[in-house]
Simulated scan of single mutants.
Amino acid sequence: MPKRIFIIEDDNMTIQILKYIFSKEGYEIIISKDGLDAIERIPEEKPDLVMTDILLPMKSGLEIIKFIKDNFSKTPVIALSSLGEEEATVLDAFKLGVDDFIAKPFSPNELLLRVKRYLK
C-alpha cells in the first residue's frame, strides 16, 4: 500500500510541484487548501506524513502542528514556509513538535530525501 502524504498548502503552483515530486515516487497525495479543512480530514485520512505551510487560511500551520502532535503524535510533520517568515514562527513550530522545517523555495531532491527519511 503506498504511503500517504497529506499536503496542506494554499498556493496552487506549490501544490502542483509537490504533487509531481511525490506522485512520481509512488506516494498517495491528499491535498487541503486551508487549515480547518485539514484538521477535519486528518483523522479520517490517516496520513503517514503531513506537510503543512505555516501561513494558511482558516487555521494556521502552527494550529495544525499542535492538533497532530496532540492527537496523532507518531505522525511526522514537515512545515513549509517562505524565506523571511519570522524566526519566532519557526521556533514556535519546533516547540509544538514539528519534525522538520523546509524553506520555500525548496530543492525537490532535498525535500524528497527528507520525506523518505520519515517514511522508511
Rank of each mutant, 00 (worst) to 15 (best):
S32K: 05
L55S: 09
I42N: 09
D11T: 06
P57A: 13
R114T: 07
P108C: 02
L83E: 08
T14R: 12
L62S: 12
V50Y: 12
P2S: 14
A79T: 14
I54D: 00
F72A: 13
T52P: 00
D48S: 14
K95W: 00
P2Q: 11
R4Q: 06
G35M: 07
A93Q: 01
E28D: 10
G97M: 08
E44R: 14
D34C: 11
I64D: 08
K74D: 15
L55T: 12
E9R: 11
K69W: 10
K66D: 11
Y27M: 08
D37C: 02
M58E: 15
L83S: 12
G84D: 09
I15N: 02
L119V: 06
F67M: 06
R114S: 01
G26W: 03
L49N: 03
P105L: 12
M58V: 04
K120F: 01
L113W: 10
I8Q: 05
L119E: 13
D34N: 15
S32H: 00
I68N: 04
G61Q: 09
E85P: 00
K46W: 00
G84F: 04
I21V: 10
D48H: 15
F94H: 03
L80Q: 02
L113F: 07
Y118V: 06
D99P: 02
E63W: 07
L96E: 06
A103Q: 05
G97T: 13
M58N: 15
K69V: 05
R114V: 11
P2T: 14
A38L: 04
T89Y: 01
P108T: 04
D92N: 14
L111E: 06
I31H: 05
A93T: 03
R117P: 00
G61K: 12
E87T: 14
L113H: 09
P47H: 06
K74L: 05
I29P: 04
D99Y: 09
I65Q: 03
K33L: 08
P108W: 00
P43D: 15
K74T: 13
Q16C: 01
L18D: 05
K46I: 04
I30S: 03
D11Q: 08
P76D: 14
L119N: 09
M1S: 11
D48E: 06
I29Y: 01
K66Q: 10
R41K: 15
N71P: 08
K69C: 04
T14N: 11
P76S: 11
A88D: 10
K95R: 15
E40M: 14
I78P: 00
L91H: 03
